[in-house]
Design a protein around this nucleic acid. Structure first.
Lengths: 231, 231
DNA sequence: GGTGATAATATGGTATCCCATAATACGCAG
DNA sequence: CTGCGTATTATGGGATACCATATTATCACC
């Protein structure tokens, strides 16, 4: 080929308006600009997003099927609330799927993937050190994306990504728990070590432990929170 | 209470037109009335479904997020095709999640659930005996739904349900494989037995084996099919 | 028989309609 | 001032008509 390995590809980044609106809305929900139970009035969203009602409705349907929005019959869309029980289930599913991805990475034992994971873990540690919590979240997401995509688990990654959005507020709570800045990275390091050693079972286990820990912290937070509101 | 156990519930079955259209479209895709890669022209679907473009678009977006429809930029929606590799991933995910559900059922060891599962397995055997393959599929779905919902794994069930739609054609192929009428039910019986015995590990394993077997059959079918077209 | 202009399709998106209903405000009688 | 029925409003569910743009098919011309 004449220029490069993937040449002549006239890329078409033109995202459609609908996709942009979707991302904006998802961000807004995930980052709690709307609160659970808030009504999402279609015509208001049209104004806020600057798009037509058609688009808004399509976006709302999409978010509904992602579980971020619930639609009440004859009342319309609201921001879905994720119950503690659902959060538990989501952590369980993540544990299983991330375990599978980690195990598959260990089976491949690709040094480039290991290097990439270590680089990202470095970013996570740095973000903790600088107390930049949002950066911790995005880097952690990158860590798992690397795990999934480099083991060819695209479908599972899609699922994990989508259910994780529903517990984003819990994630941002758990990472600011005392000691999490040490324990979290340490657990991720164990995943990397197991992959480096090609030990699938250990990688599965390490990924599982990491999620289980996060789940336990989240559960404690929720219990505490409930306790506070009950009083 | 005055009338029955779940009384006074003013049920509101009024499904919205959009939901009806969604189900019709999903059925049409899952049952191969449209073929993979077929274009789904919005205005044509309006005619065929007898609804407005508003509805059709919302339905298409919804199906897109379920992975049944893909949307090409400036060309519009087509029926998504599930590659063999994606099918492999889907079977893997199902194995993990159904294993979890089976294990949880074993932990509960609820005799009513066991009875329900045995009743459904009876339906599956009967459907096989009568050579009613579609009934086999729906009963099998019921079997797993029972497993998931009685162990409180609603989120996982939603995921399994949605990804399973994408491999429906494989499911309908695998169940008409020779001997599957004996082996399938036998494997499901082992799941039930493990639950009855309260043996979580065995239940996990049995559920996993069942899915793995289906995956292996599917893979063989796909290889055969590819072989035929290549020649 | 290619090449380029043209016409036909179809999407992405908008702007307005209409109707049904749930929630609220309102107003009246006791 | 309390309870009840009614009017109003807000909003969702749905349908149309329309525009701009991009793709595809057609076709005439050299």
């Amino acid at each position: 080929m004449s220029v490069s390995d993937q040449p002549m590809r006239v890329l078409r980044p033109e995202k459609t308006l609908r996709e942009l609106a979707l991302e904006k809305m998802r961000d807004a929900i995930v980052n709690m600009h709307f609160r659970a139970g808030d009504r999402l009035v279609e015509r208001d969203l049209c104004d806020q997003l600057g798009v037509s009602r058609t688009i808004v409705r399509e976006v709302l349907r999409h978010l509904e099927s992602e579980g971020l929005v619930a639609i009440l019959p004859n009342r319309g869309p609201i921001v879905a609330e994720t119950t503690p029980e659902e959060a538990r289930q989501i952590y369980e599913i993540r544990g299983a799927l991330e375990g599978i991805a980690a195990k598959a990475c260990a089976a491949q034992k690709d040094p480039r993937v290991v290097a990439e994971l270590e680089r990202i873990l470095g970013r996570i540690r740095a973000a903790y050190a600088a107390n930049e919590l949002p950066a911790v979240l995005t880097a952690t997401t990158d860590f798992y994306r690397t795990l999934f995509e480099n083991s060819g688990r695209h479908v599972a990654w899609g699922i994990v990504n989508s259910i994780t959005a529903r517990i984003n507020y819990l994630r941002s709570m758990t990472i600011k728990t005392p000691d999490r800045d040490k324990q979290g990275p340490a657990q991720m390091q164990r995943i990397i070590d197991a992959i480096k050693a090609g030990d699938g079972a250990a990688a599965y286990e390490a990924a599982n432990v990491h999620v289980k820990n996060a789940a336990a912290i989240a559960e404690a937070l929720l219990a505490e929170q409930q306790d506070a509101t009950a009083r």
